[in-house]
Design a protein around this nucleic acid. Sequence first.
DNA 1: CAATCAAATAATTTCGATATTTAATTGACA
DNA 2: TGTCAATTAAATATCGAAATTATTTGATTG
Lengths: 240, 240
Amino acid sequence: MPPNDEVLTRIAGLAVPEPAGTLASSVYDRLRGDILTGSLPPGEKLRTEALRARYEVGNSPIREALNRLSADGLVTREDQKGFRVAAASRADLEELVKTRCWLEQIALRESIANGDDSWEEGLVLSFHRLSRVRRSSSEDHYSVNPDWERLHRAFHLALLSACGSRWLLQYCAQLNDQADRYRQLAIVVSYPRRNELDEHEAMMKAATARDADSAISLLMAHYERTAGIILESISEFAAN
Amino acid sequence: MPPNDEVLTRIAGLAVPEPAGTLASSVYDRLRGDILTGSLPPGEKLRTEALRARYEVGNSPIREALNRLSADGLVTREDQKGFRVAAASRADLEELVKTRCWLEQIALRESIANGDDSWEEGLVLSFHRLSRVRRSSSEDHYSVNPDWERLHRAFHLALLSACGSRWLLQYCAQLNDQADRYRQLAIVVSYPRRNELDEHEAMMKAATARDADSAISLLMAHYERTAGIILESISEFAAN
DNA sequence: CAATCAAATAATTTCGATATTTAATTGACA
DNA sequence: TGTCAATTAAATATCGAAATTATTTGATTG
């Protein structure tokens, strides 16, 4: 079955990080976060014992979270050999961006064709919120602002949210996660600045004007540019 | 030391789909199979205790398998409320088919553009194998032939296998699973026959002739037709 | 009679420990 | 000194039971 409403609300960024109902879900969220921020680097071995200590829970919740993440593609699993953070490489990033463009092109076109007023309003709202938070949480040096990250994700998913397929939306969200991880890995090395807000505004305006071709061009260019910057700033990813 | 039985069966080529390395993976495969065949119907509650009895393993492998399946979309999970087989509905099937057409259209076009000789050969081989097994394992009444199901799946994935994106390929495989489940659900009610082999042959020929537009038309029509048959044969899916 | 609440029951989730498998180390032998 | 086998150590996977949370049952009250 396609992702349920709870998942969709979470994707839309409209829910605050509410306390998860089970330890397994809580560990899943935290582990996912730690992988996306690069706090757990690509290829890192994920030993049960170490994670037990890190998250202060027992065996079972850890393994349940790891099993879910492995189906998400953020963690790799090999029978009898345990879990690792998914590897990262230039080739992988290129494949990822290509796939993302294919899927989001469809999703955006459909969204623009089918989106109703509430979709349009959600989009405007997402952009507004994104425009009000700083890219970096510090003034002098760059440091990741979790609010910006969350709202940025929400904006991009708002664009696609009316595509009419929960499957496609979920896949886009998954690829979004993967791309976010690469962005974070690049930031560690020093992330070159650019005016992303203008790009987002242009997309939002093209989408609300129902100009599908323009919106798609802008979105594709946005992704290609980001990928280019990441590829420039990183010669090669560490191989564990 | 003389080779053990396992080695001998392997050499003789008599080994069935080799047993998974861990109990969790084995249960995952069996559960997945039971859901795809409809042996575990949509909406069915998946109680730990019942599954423990069914598959004769402990608690942990069951839960690990369920967690993986929930990320695959074959099972739904709600914190503190356990697991269920994913629901099925006409609306869901329509959304599924639509998404499948979107994604496979891209995958097939890319496959045809990029596929090398070994892709072409794999495709011809897949078709040949599919053509040599019967649709039904019984002559007089219809009964699912697991070999045909497996080879049918393999053929469709062979078509897309050169698309150049493991992500896209994985998504197509996932949607394939979902569609297979609907097909099985319809078969229970009595599945109308048609000459699927010719359709598959036409696709194979168009693909090897590198005629992307024709191949895509054939594939889309193939899916639409299947969906139509399923929707006709089922008034509504049971709601648990 | 319907609604509410509390107790009892059932199911899910989690823990700690054990069994199995893999990886690392040691030591014998060439 | 290098290789291989045997041994030890470490890690993974699994089990069974305890703790937590949901659901049902049944009594009580408005």
